[in-house]
Design a protein around this nucleic acid. Structure first.
Length: 136
DNA sequence: CTTCTAACA
DNA sequence: TGTTAGGA
């Protein structure tokens, strides 16, 4: 399929798809016309790329990881276990990030729970709202 | 009409 | 990343 179809099927802009190729994340074949030619697997690969990027993994690591997670099997393909240490490091970083967010959520929950609705005597705050608050 | 590369009021 | 120019 050409880039337009892949973009539609993944919801990722053509611009981003070309950028991923530039970063070594995708290696589409080329047609005589020069148009990129993606195989069906590209759809899933793009999903993995988005997931990994969203989690904060560096593109360089993702580029090495993708070819190591071939078929739908579990574990890295043979000849790839050297990546495990890096993956463990990313996993630990993500765990720490999750913990930080959980603390933030707890703090907000405490504030929300301790704030009575329709506060008749609001705390002092003379500043104007920075943004229009939705009234719904 | 679709895609390509290169570049940025 | 978006967008656009200038081509194929």
């Amino acid at each position: 399929m050409r880039i337009g179809e892949l973009a539609r099927r993944t919801g990722i802009s053509e611009r981003a798809l070309r950028y991923y190729e530039e970063q070594g994340l995708l290696r589409p074949a080329r047609r005589p016309s020069g148009y990129r030619d993606y195989d069906e697997g590209a759809v899933d690969t793009v999903r993995d790329i988005r997931t990994l990027l969203a989690a904060g993994l560096p593109t360089a690591l993702i580029a090495e990881l993708l070819p190591c997670m071939v078929n739908g099997t579990a574990g890295l393909a043979p000849g790839c276990p050297e990546l495990v240490p890096y993956l463990e490091k990313e996993r630990d970083r993500i765990s720490a990030a999750i913990d930080d967010l959980a603390r933030t959520r707890s703090l907000l929950n405490a504030i929300i729970a301790a704030t009575p609705p329709e506060n008749p005597n609001p705390p002092v705050c003379d500043r104007e709202p920075a943004v229009e608050l939705a009234t719904r």
